[in-house]
Design a protein around this nucleic acid. Structure first.
Lengths: 194, 194
DNA sequence: CTGATTTGATAACATATGTTATCGCCGACC
DNA sequence: GGTCGGCGATAACATATGTTATCAAATCAG
């Protein structure tokens, strides 16, 4: 739980530890929906093993916006605390092992933490990071062609391409599966032909 | 200065007031660049009168990502404080009156403010709002066609369409000026024809 | 092992969008 | 008033991308 935070703010370890036993372990097959678009998350979810994606529905087809792997967690504080309905559906891509920490416990945890001066610091750091990530994603969508986005993904986060089925990648890049195939084909031909 | 914040956090008024006289008033014509992409902002900028846009360059053409009008301010704290180079160019669209508060003064102001408990609250609120705005923009880019984005802009922020030259709107919507004309033409024909 | 499902490639065609060029309108300026 | 430049509409053509259909390979379930 909260492994991502632990690395950066080890002084908060005792707080997490107290809540570790309260988590619920869950083994689920691929294509399990952990949280549905429009619903309020009742748990903080962290991934011990496997891989999930966040997507939303547009007239029947799914637009993937993010992938998560081992040791990632979501339901970030603000939307979680304020009970804002999720804009995204969270679904496993592979058979996965996840841990759930009930909302009530998370609220207690936050209560504990708010005594700690570095807590605010952590929140600010996390929100700033997340903002930067989404901002870069937006800029990339505006600036780059699908082919450029594919190449960028290939060079910056190749593990995603290796691990995630291609139609999810296509959805993430904002193109049809057919077009992503075309892009790959074109790149392959361009690369070795001459 | 900081009018946007004042409405929401009136208890901080005395802090702003102290720095009001230190601002520099600036009258500038249209198409004046206030901050260049890649440079570190040396001032907190607020707009008293007029209208500006933020854009970045992609292979010679400009991608507009946001518009600002009277009583808005930018150079939000994190990027400002940490001296991160701006990803965007800030340019006036109309002849405008802007106020600049030098970076050094802003740092002093933040120092003052950090005594105040509601300051953190304000930062969190502002960053959350900004994150929501960018997030919605990203989702709209992924989900909506250019025509849908135009209609959304028309219904949600018609003042922008009324006030801003159309080629900037096209750039903001992510299409060519020609295509935006086509969209408008199609909508107009569709509306009154039958 | 075998049939069913998933995944990815490819072709053919349809639609959306970009590019370039041209024209007309209108407001700024002399 | 006349000229010039910025702005927006439109047409013609080029390119990018979506859609549907088909096939083959890989994977999974019984």
């Amino acid at each position: 739980m909260f492994l991502h935070f632990r690395k950066q703010f080890p002084q908060l370890d005792p707080y997490w530890d107290k809540y570790l036993p309260l988590q619920q372990r869950l083994e689920v097959p691929a294509k399990t929906i952990l949280l549905k678009e429009g619903q309020v998350s009742q748990n903080y979810i962290s991934i011990e093993q496997g891989c999930v994606r966040a997507y939303f529905d547009k007239d029947g087809d799914e637009k993937t916006i993010q992938f998560f792997f081992e040791n990632a967690g979501f339901s970030l504080f603000d939307s979680f605390v304020n009970e804002v309905p999720s804009q995204f559906t969270i679904e496993t891509i592979e058979p996965s092992v996840v841990y759930l920490l009930a909302r009530a416990h998370v609220l207690l945890l936050i209560d504990d933490l708010s005594q700690e001066p570095s807590f605010m610091q952590m929140i600010l750091k996390i929100t700033a990071e997340r903002h930067r990530r989404f901002n870069n994603e937006l800029i990339s969508f505006i600036r780059d062609t699908p082919e450029e986005r594919y190449l960028r993904l290939l060079s910056e986060r190749p593990h995603i391409i290796r691990r995630v089925p291609q139609h999810y990648i296509a959805s993430y890049l904002g193109v049809s599966t057919v077009h992503l195939s075309r892009i790959k084909g074109k790149l392959a031909r361009g690369a070795d032909h001459f």
